[in-house]
Structure formats: C-alpha cells, structure tokens
Design a protein around this nucleic acid. Sequence first.
DNA 1: AATGAATGAGCCTTCATTCAT
DNA 2: GATGAATGAAGGCTCATTCAT
Lengths: 227, 227, 227, 227
Amino acid sequence: MCDDTRTRVLNAAGPIFAEKGFHRATVREICRAAGVNVASINYHFGDKERLYIETVKRARQARVAQAPLPSAHPDDPPEERLEAFVHTMLMRMIGIEEPPWQWKLMMREILQPTKAFEEMIDEYFLPEFHMLLDILDELLPPDVPEHTRTQVGLGIIGQCLFYRIAANVIQMMIPAEERARHYSVDELTRHICRFTLAALEQSTTPRTRDEPSEVSVCDESATDELA
Amino acid sequence: MCDDTRTRVLNAAGPIFAEKGFHRATVREICRAAGVNVASINYHFGDKERLYIETVKRARQARVAQAPLPSAHPDDPPEERLEAFVHTMLMRMIGIEEPPWQWKLMMREILQPTKAFEEMIDEYFLPEFHMLLDILDELLPPDVPEHTRTQVGLGIIGQCLFYRIAANVIQMMIPAEERARHYSVDELTRHICRFTLAALEQSTTPRTRDEPSEVSVCDESATDELA
Amino acid sequence: MCDDTRTRVLNAAGPIFAEKGFHRATVREICRAAGVNVASINYHFGDKERLYIETVKRARQARVAQAPLPSAHPDDPPEERLEAFVHTMLMRMIGIEEPPWQWKLMMREILQPTKAFEEMIDEYFLPEFHMLLDILDELLPPDVPEHTRTQVGLGIIGQCLFYRIAANVIQMMIPAEERARHYSVDELTRHICRFTLAALEQSTTPRTRDEPSEVSVCDESATDELA
Amino acid sequence: MCDDTRTRVLNAAGPIFAEKGFHRATVREICRAAGVNVASINYHFGDKERLYIETVKRARQARVAQAPLPSAHPDDPPEERLEAFVHTMLMRMIGIEEPPWQWKLMMREILQPTKAFEEMIDEYFLPEFHMLLDILDELLPPDVPEHTRTQVGLGIIGQCLFYRIAANVIQMMIPAEERARHYSVDELTRHICRFTLAALEQSTTPRTRDEPSEVSVCDESATDELA
DNA sequence: AATGAATGAGCCTTCATTCAT
DNA sequence: GATGAATGAAGGCTCATTCAT
C-alpha cells in the first residue's frame, strides 16, 4: 500500500526532526526508524526538504487534537473563558512531561522559520489567537483601541510561551520544591489570569502617546533557508 | 603569537556560530574567516565543540557592555527604574536592526542548551533578573509572597522575550504600518509598564471576583512539576 | 495494446538517447516522455541496453527516408552524380539546422560503437559507400587499382564527415560572416567536387614530381596495421 | 608532497576519463586507481568537473610531445613539408596501436565539447593548423582566395581525422590483409599528398560562384554541459 | 499487459579530524 | 606553534531494476 510506507516515514520523521532539527536529522536515520529504504523518501517526497515540510504540516494537524482549546461557550463569563484558554495554553507548554514532538517541531519553526512556516501561522496560530482576542473583547471596555487589545493578547501568549522557552532557565533558577508548589499549570494559570484581569480593570482609560517611534518590532528579514 | 591565532579564531567563530548554529557552521568556514589553518582549531581548542563553548563564553562577556542595564539610581522612583529596565530589555530584543551575533548566540543557548549553557545563566541572566526583582520589591506591598514577585518578574521578561521570539509571527500577523506605529520599543515599553503597574496596584488589595476567596494570589495549593 | 506501448517507448527513447547518449539518458525520463510506466521498459525490452539497441535499429531504418541519396540515373554524367552525392552527404551533415535525432544517434554509434553498431554498417553505410564507388569507377581510368578508388572514396566521405565533426572547431576558427559565405552546403559541395575531380584528372597520367618514379599512386609497398 | 597526490590523481584520471567519458567515470574509480582517498579530489580540484578540465589540459600538453610536428625547415621544398605534416597527423591518428588516452580525451572534447574545449582549440589546434596553411601558401598560386586555402587545409585534416574516427567502420569494411597493405600510415600519407598536390596543380585558376548560399556550416549551439 | 511502490547499489560531495613537516 | 595534505565516515540523492498486484 502506498500510504503505508509514506505514513511510516512521516511518523518516523516527526520525532527525529523535532529532536534534531532539519539539518542534524538524516534521511538514513529516518528511514532506518521507519524500516524503509532510503530511496523511498525520494520516491514519496522528492527530497529531504519536502519531507520536512510535509512533516511539519502533519504535526500541526495532529497538534490540535491533543490539547484542543475548550469549545467556547459564549454564555460563560469571559473571565472563565480566559482562564480556560490560558490553562490550555500552559498545558500545551509545560503540562506534559515530555512535550510531544509535534510541539518541538512547531517551536523550531517559530524560532527559525523555514518554508513550512507560513501555512502554520495561518492555519494554526491565527485562529487560536483570535479566539483569545474575542475573550478580551468582552473584558475590555469598548473604547480601548485595537492595538492595545492585541498587545494584551500578545502579552498573555508571551507569558505562556515564556514558561516553555525558558523552562531550562527556570529549572536552574528555582529550586525543585518551590517549582513544584508554585509553578504548576494550575498555579501559573491562576497567576496570569489574576494579573491580567487586574491590569485590565485598572487600565480602563488607556492612553496612548501620539508620536510613533521609529524602531518597529521586526524589521529584519525573517523567513530564510531551512535553518 | 599563540594568543593572536586563538583570538582571531574566536572573533571569527562568533558571528558564524550565531548565524548558523553549531552544526551548520563548519570549521573550515570559521578558519577561512579567521585567516588561519584548519588544524589550528584542533590545536588550540581540541575540537569543534570546545571552540563553541569558548565562543559562547566570550559572547556573554562582550554582551553586557553593548546594551547595559541602566545603572540603578536607588533614589529614582521604582516606576521609572522599571521603565528603564523594560526599555533596555526590549531594546536588546528588537531595538537593534540587526541583532548582534552575541545575542543570537545566547538565544540559541536558551532554546537549545548545550554545555555552554549553565555558566551563562549564573553569570549573565541571574544578576539581571535580581535587579528586576529588586525593583518589584519596592513596587509590591511587603506581604506579597516571594513566588508571586518572581512570577511577576518572569511575566515581564516573558513578554519582552516574546516580542523577539515571535518576531516572525508578528511580522506576518500585523500590518507593517501598524507595527511601526504601535510596536516600537518605546510604545511596547509603555504598554508593558502600564500593564504591570496597573496589575500591581490592583493586587495590592487582593480581591476575589466570584471565585472562592481562598484562591488568592498567595494561595499555595501545589500540583506538579515543570517540564 | 502491447505494440502501442512498445512503439511509444521507442519513439520517446530516440530523441532522448540521441541527445544525451546511453548513459546520461534515464529510463524514467524516457518513460515520462512516453507516458508509460517505468516497469514497461523492463517488461518489453528486458533492460535499458536492449531498448537502446532497438532504438538505434529503428533510427537507421527511419534515417534513409529523410535525406535519401538521389536515385542514380545511370545516364547522367558521373561528374553530376558525384556532385549530387556530395551535396546529399553535406546536407545530412550540416545542412539541417537541428540535425534529426536519428543522425545524432548514428554519430554516437560511429564514434563509440556499442552492440548496435555492426548491423548499422552493413545495412546503412556500406550500400551508400558502394554507390559512391560506382560513381568513382566511371571517373577513374580503368587501370587504377581497387584500393586507390576506395581511398578516394573514403577521402570524400572523410571531408564531408569532417565538417560535421569539427563543426565546433570551425565555428571558433572562422568568423561567422565568412562561414556564411564560403562554408555553405552548396559552396562546400562545389569545392570538394572540384578538388576531387581535379585530382582525378591529374592522376590519370601518374606523373612523378621529383620523387623516384616507383612511388606511384598504385604503388603497393605495404607497411603495418590500422588501429 | 602536495604535487605527488595531485599528480597521481591526474595520471589516474586521464585514461579513465578517456575510456569512459566524464559521466561514466567515477571519482571512486579514479581514486582507487590513484591509491588516494576520495576526498582528495575535493581538496585538490574542488570537484569532479574541475578535475576533468585539469585532466584535459594536461592531456593536451602531454600530447604535443608524443608526436610533435616536424620542426619546419623553411628551406625544404613545400611538397616535402606537406608530406611530413600529413605523416605526423596520420601517425597521431592511427600510427600507434593503442591510441594514447590523451588522444581519446581530446577526441571526446572535439565531439562533445565541455568547458575544457576552448582552451584546447586556441593552444593546440590553431597553431598546428596555421603551420599547414603556411605550407599550402607556398604550394598554391598567389591569386587563390583565402577561403579556398582554408578549405584545402580543412580537407586534409578532415581526411586524416576520418581515418581515426571511422576506424571502426573501416575495420569492418576492408579485409585485414588489404588494410595492412594499403592503409598503413605511410601509404595513406602518400595517397593524401599525391591527391592533394594533383588537385592543387589543376586548380590553378580557382573560380568561385558569387552568390553565397544561406545554409552555413555550423549554426547550432555547440558548447554545452559536460556531456 | 501494465502498474505504482519499493529496493540496493552507487553516485558526488562534505565534514571534522589527524598527520608529517 | 603552525601548516597543508590527507583521511574515513557520512551526507543527500539518483539510478535501473524488481515485485506484488
């Protein structure tokens, strides 16, 4: 069966690419893991790069199912929905002992985008981010400018992501005992939500300086070669 | 002179490791850039890996000088010192068009720690983080537990770091024009500080929304680990 | 239909083998061009080599029709028939902008004979060469020995072939403008015929320049081998 | 010693490239024959293609020494010098039992030019051809147009070359015994010279048609990829 | 008769490393 | 200390061929 080999290769490629990245992973290793011939990759995917792109695509698809965002009940109070959102996010980040390879792979793409990047943003990141924005919409007073809402949203995501990215740092910085007590998913969820809500309540009347400053967030060219 | 060759190799290795990472960078390329013989590396550093570790070490040392934290004037109001801190952080992250290779190299270590990692934390990250904690100390009421202060600090760092890490995502998500207006270093500094201060102020008098009151900011229900 | 696939493969193989030679041409490329499955070739021809031999065979067969020698009118004066012969030869060599793949394929065989070679000589080259010899027979006096006639014939063929083989050299050696004026098929035909006829006329009465008279055109001193 | 390995590789590469051509020859085979590591080729020549070019270059250089043209004695009668020239040419073509690999390699270039081609023409072919033209200059009446002289020269070269190129054909066409008697280098030299001289004498008053015909010798693009 | 999938051998190239000088 | 040359292992990829259907 065609799909059989193809699928086995993809399944084998995922964890390996996730662990080693595009360049350190070798097709030979992937094929050995999949129990197929090296030429299969050329046959089914053309070359290593296209196998990688396909793998990332599948990773994203499989990712959603593993820790799906709670289906929004529009009637729930927005505070509750925010907490559910943050909780899911943190669960994805640090809630699972060994983060699944799909996640590692996606992190690699975020940090060192390749050709597989764009699609991931459009089909995975943006929809979920808009879900967060909708929640914030209900929490923020109506006169808050669009970009403030976005910034608040990014701040939330940023804090969640940070606990994943800086996991190594935190592990070294905070004693295991305290980490277990105060840096659990639940505990961090509570902290981030409380912190955010407190700020929102306070900043009912946001105020923006009018002169834009010249240094923007990301001027540098982003998407280059397969890192 | 021995030191001459050694130094030239280190100087050449920095930007190359930063740009390509450990594995994609080749000793030949580094030696060509340094104008030395390929065998020099093995002679002076033993092997490629030890050259890399040495390079990271030097990167950290050189890093501090480039965007140094504002020397704390203990008399300045803490709000001002917080703003200065965040501003410096953001400047390091996204303020410089082409981030210096030292920074790239350190980011690589944070995300994919190698043997060069531990030392970096102790000598670079922790000192600066404690400077932030000191500022927060003055802003937070005295009864706030230690871990909350740490979490707030991590949140601030997390948001700053996020704008660097997710630069690619933001670039795709937010139109260039708006990015220039609302996502400059100054603007983001203002947002993060306002947001943080607002939350802090609010949490001075921990207040329960509708959840049971025991879930306070200093609640110590503990669960599990941090990956 | 079996023949359908077989034929399509052969038709596709011709130009490809002609262009790239046996080794650089790939079965995949041929099959793609023919719109058939890769396995077809092994099924119908056994292997790549036998497909090649079959292709050369067909090329020869198709070749004759494309630039056929002028049907000999035995009544025409031999000078005219010689000119027609040479003209046809040159036309095949350099007269057609893009030489047909059949020709390219046959050239390859002449220069680097494979198993497909022998048959080509017998059925294609020899008949035409004997036509030339017949013409020379009428032009040469009856007492000229056989091998001289053969040598003259080979000389004519050799000159024609040379303009094809050395096309690249001539292109670099002679300016385009002069090439167009004096190296057209017509012009070269005239030159070769005039030259040959002049030599033949002269050698009717073998005449010694200053060498000893025994070195005549029909001298039969023999030496060694032909590589 | 650097030159040692380099030279050994070149010496080994020559016959192999000559026998199999660029594509069929493998670097592994060459290195095995040279008794060096495969990586040597990359180190000394960059890649297979540049090794090939270098090999052709050396072949040409070495070629001249093996059957050098007789140093021209301007006082010798031109007929004698012509005979010496043709004799040398034929000797190169068919005089040596196993044609040296240098010759095979150069033939490959003539027939399927690669990047190594141009230099060969300029430094090897042209000088020798002009030597022939000088001889013809003395044999031809002064009013003979330039292009006729060139054509006569090309005709001579063409005939010589033909005996090499068509060696396979001749071998099949002419019985061994007769080949030994009448197709030796000496015999063919005599024939070609006699034939040429006879024609020259006759064509004292060459005549050119005035209208150039439109089909030129070599319109097609010549130099392409390494065949 | 025909196919798509799979194979293993082999290709050129690149790499970090070592060796003799 | 420093060098240029040399090495072996491994890299991605391509090929003609075969197998089960």
